[in-house]
Design a protein around this nucleic acid. Structure first.
Lengths: 97, 97
DNA sequence: TCAATTAGTCAGGAAAACATGACCATAATT
DNA sequence: AATTATGGTCATGTTTTCCTGACTAATTGA
């Protein structure tokens, strides 16, 4: 049962927290990200956790999954509009001590 | 072993995430907070978890613990300078959809 | 045709976070 | 002297999150 947050910031904090989401979001700022590429870039990560993180970030509307019909056929995750609306906050978080 | 974050925003996100920290931080914006008062205000919370959250937020330098030598002798937690530097980011998070 | 790359899923276990209830110490009130 | 309020701690158990290794399946290049 998902109960709605008692505090408005809670939901957004949850969408970005967890062991791998901040790094995935960070990489998504620079352009489309891909499953295997994330696995290689994020040291210490693993298939399962990255798959779950991507799925949840997609469900929360931060990322959009796109099947790219080009050789090699592959899948991309792009920042959605909602995701983009978080860029400035994320940058601010990065700039703080 | 605490390994330093791979992404700068990670540390700050961690300091504010967890089941009760957002609500505690939110209440601390309005002024000093106190242990028993938080327990009463935050429905569903419990001693142990609030105690741990306060301790961690203090260790992370978001809150400062103050013993108030007034009757009744009590303890207050105030937003530190670092905590205050997060106010605008927190407000932005609150204002997003 | 075989191997590699793509992008995953699934079951099981370990680790971290959270909750519960008992207990404690000090100070103030009745 | 007993009770209440302060602000916790401790041991234990549950729940959630995370990790590991095996497996799948389509596409592509040699």
């Amino acid at each position: 049962m998902e109960n709605e947050p008692a505090c408005p910031a809670e939901g957004l904090l949850k969408m970005l927290s967890g062991k791998w989401k901040p790094q995935i979001f960070r990489l998504a700022l620079d352009g489309p990200v891909r499953f295997n590429s994330l696995l290689r870039q994020i040291e210490g990560s693993n298939k399962q956790s990255v798959a779950v993180a991507l799925k949840e970030m997609e469900e929360h509307g931060l990322l959009e999954k796109v099947v790219v019909k080009l050789k090699p056929l592959h899948i991309e995750y792009n920042l959605s509009e909602k995701g983009k609306s978080l860029i400035s906050v994320f940058r601010q978080l990065e700039s703080l001590i």
